[in-house]
Simulated scan of single mutants.
Amino acid sequence: MGRLDGKVALISGAARGQGEAEARAFVREGARVVLADLLDKEGEQVAEELGDRAAYVHLDVRRPDEWATAVAAATSRFGKLDVLVNNAGILRVGALETMPLEEYLQVIQVNQVGCFLGMQAAVPALRAAGGGSIVNTSSTSGLAGIAGTVAYTASKFAVRGMTKTAAVELGHDNIRVNSIHPGAVDTPMIAAPPGFEDVDSDSVYAGLPLPRVGKPEDVAALALFLASDESAYCTGSEFVVDGGFLAGPPLPRTS
């Protein structure tokens, strides 16, 4: 018996990285999944590999009409919608003083507005199914500031706040809303951005209490828990998966 038997999920940004790992984990645990992304070739390939329990739909998370299409794809193909995972996101690096407004707004539109539109589109279907779970992907940057990520941090703090508001508004509809806060995860998004090429990432991860970079599967396991009935009394909460990054400064290394 799978942990998500009978559930239907919609996952944004599911063509690769964390979203792909979530889609694979959800199908493995019995869910039927609609994968949504801008990367059509990659997304279609993942859906094909997952078989008849998965389908792919093109989704630009900034567009309300495409969100409506994605939700309709879930309900028409699989009969209902129980779970929304707002996973899609982008990163633009730049200091507060020099970041162009255009780049700042690109991040806000995808990470913040995209999450808002996804919840807004999914709520009627979740309500019609008798309730469900929304999992919003924030970040450790939604809990603490990191230099050079003003737009990303702003967007992820917003996701955290929207999650709590949605949890308060939707709880009586049996819709739970929680946020996941990953630290560094080994996905294409954290490939060294401009200005960070000389950072020795291995030494950064070695200083963590759990001394390694995160894997997409680490995040997927947490999303799976929040999508399942195992988290039936969890809503409006923050779930951190960061190897201990936010726990405190590392201990001095000894030989």
Results as ranks from 00 to 15, higher is better:
110 V>P: 11
41 K>Y: 07
52 D>E: 15
130 G>P: 14
120 Q>E: 07
91 L>D: 12
45 Q>R: 12
131 G>S: 10
129 A>K: 09
85 V>G: 01
28 R>K: 14
117 L>S: 12
113 V>T: 14
49 E>T: 14
89 G>Y: 13
117 L>K: 13
97 E>K: 12
83 V>D: 00
95 A>M: 11
34 V>F: 00
26 F>C: 00
21 A>P: 13
46 V>S: 00
47 A>G: 10
24 R>K: 15
66 E>W: 12
125 A>T: 11
71 V>Q: 06
36 A>F: 08
62 R>A: 13
98 T>P: 06
32 R>M: 08
86 N>A: 12
19 G>R: 02
24 R>V: 01
85 V>E: 01
120 Q>Y: 04
75 T>S: 03
110 V>T: 15
119 M>A: 13
56 Y>N: 11
91 L>H: 07
19 G>I: 03
69 T>Y: 03
105 L>S: 05
121 A>Y: 09
30 G>N: 01
68 A>M: 05
84 L>T: 03
40 D>P: 03
39 L>G: 06
67 W>V: 01
23 A>T: 03
17 G>T: 10
107 V>P: 09
89 G>S: 13
110 V>R: 15
49 E>R: 13
23 A>K: 02
60 D>K: 10
103 E>S: 15
74 A>N: 13
64 P>K: 07
81 L>F: 02
105 L>R: 15
58 H>M: 09
82 D>A: 08
47 A>H: 01
47 A>L: 04
58 H>Q: 11
28 R>T: 07
39 L>M: 14
92 R>Q: 12
93 V>F: 05
49 E>Q: 15
45 Q>F: 08
26 F>R: 00
122 A>T: 07
82 D>E: 08
110 V>N: 14
50 L>H: 06
42 E>I: 05
127 R>K: 15
15 A>T: 12
97 E>V: 13
48 E>M: 03
100 P>Q: 03
42 E>R: 14
12 S>E: 11
22 E>G: 12
65 D>Q: 13
92 R>Y: 11
48 E>I: 02
132 G>H: 01
86 N>L: 09
90 I>D: 12
25 A>I: 03
23 A>W: 00
43 G>E: 07
61 V>P: 02
46 V>D: 00
110 V>K: 15
95 A>H: 11
81 L>Y: 04
93 V>M: 06
27 V>E: 05
75 T>K: 02
96 L>E: 04
129 A>Y: 03
60 D>H: 13
123 V>L: 07
51 G>P: 11
44 E>R: 13
92 R>W: 04
84 L>S: 01
52 D>C: 06
17 G>M: 06
120 Q>R: 12
63 R>M: 09
126 L>W: 09
38 L>M: 12
126 L>K: 04
31 A>I: 02
19 G>Q: 08
53 R>I: 05
83 V>Q: 00
